[in-house]
Amino acid sequence: MGQLTHLQRLEAESIHILREVAAEAEKPVMLYSVGKDSAVMLHLAKKAFYPSPPPFPLLHVDTTWKFQEMYKLREKAAQDAGMELLVYQNPEAKEKGINPFDHGSLHTDMWKTEGLKQALDTYGFDTAFGGARRDEEKSRAKERVFSFRSANHRWDPKNQRPELWNLYNSRKSAGESIRVFPISNWTELDIWQYIHLENIEIVPLYLSEKRPTITRDGMLLMVDDERFPLKDGETPEMRSIRFRTLGCYPLTGAVESEAKTLPEVIQEMLLTTTSERQGRAIDHDQAASMEKKKQEGYF
């Protein structure tokens, strides 16, 4: 396979994984978060099944606190792919008005972790594609491509199946489900390069522009809508910013940047010295926080 470039090999591997699931799963779904990794995963799905549309729906587990531009792209991307878009919002979180300003980590627990479990149970999906990558974080380096979850969605790092060659075992008992990560072996740089090469549409927030911001707890936050409660003395200030990762806007830190094109973004990324997840408040709690969250069922 030496004649293929690393991106061609990664693409072929991802397409193989997507097709295995389409062929073997009973009711698959693709978790779509509107971020750059989701964009690449969706693009790969379109390629894997062309000229058919991907034979599964997209599912967005919504927190109602995403950036407005994400909601806009979400609808368009699903339409372009010819796929059904399912949006799930945890009714309990909605009723209680759970939000990132007042509820801290409960916000992520209820909207995302609980929301995802509820959505999968509600629709009866047995296999869900996710856009996680092994290079994102230490505990993810050991995650399988096919990751098994018990009937209550727990991940047991000691009880995962060995994965040899390109042979994936997708058999499971009733109630169990599988998370499948087709872009496990892609790095952040691979993702950006592929978006650039394949001209994949991404949320404009990844590119720099003047946007209303405030700084709080050392993070640069964007005031995306009127729900942002400003503290005394805080006035939104226009800064040239972009985002390296996208989540709920009150939890996602921006970086000051002048990178208005993809090559410039890649250039900045390669020359800066802050890793990707630094922008997400969720990881800062404790050293092994991601691993703990994963065991509880967070993607």
């Binding site: 740089l189 390069q193 650039h196």
Partner: peptide, 10 residues
């Protein structure tokens, strides 16, 4: 640089 990276083997 991107051109170089794009053509790397694995």
């Amino acid at each position: 640089y991107l051109d170089q990276h794009q053509h790397k083997s694995m």
